[in-house]
């Protein structure tokens, strides 16, 4: 049995997830969005990763990046470690791929701002 606080809206329902013979039963939710969220959190919890990587030749030393799609929650640390070693070179455009298929997740890491060469 897992307790999950719903984050879909400000109500913040306290939900309970129980698994019986492979079937997931969600209680405590007010709406279908809550149930969907609780199922996703139980089966395959994912998060968007936002961090920075080093960049040379730009106005600032850090380039902000994000995962183009949510990553499996248990792979975030591995992805952060990989990105800590990445060095980019200006210019970079917002949306450019910084690291493709990071840690074999099939998700790309992309730049979230444009940084001109200076």
């Amino acid at each position: 049995m897992d307790n999950i606080i719903c984050i879909e809206c400000p109500l913040g329902c306290d939900m309970t997830v129980e698994q019986h013979e492979g079937e997931i039963v969600v209680t405590g939710n007010t709406c279908p969005r809550g149930e969907q969220y609780a199922r996703q959190e139980t089966v395959d919890p994912r998060r968007v990763l936002t961090t920075t990587v080093f960049i040379d030749g730009a106005t600032h030393p850090m380039l902000p990046v994000k995962s183009a799609q949510p990553l499996p929650k248990d792979r975030l640390d591995a992805c952060l470690r990989t990105l800590a070693a990445v060095h980019m070179k200006a210019p970079v455009a917002c949306g450019d791929v910084v690291c493709s298929d990071i840690c074999g997740t099939a998700v790309d890491i992309v730049a979230t701002r444009t940084m001109e060469a200076v």
Partner: peptide, 17 residues
């Protein structure tokens, strides 16, 4: 640099930058 910006204006979760 975190995301969650623009859900109303762009209908998408953007980062601040």
């Amino acid at each position: 640099i975190h995301h969650g910006f623009g859900t109303f204006v762009f209908g998408d979760m953007l980062t601040g930058p």
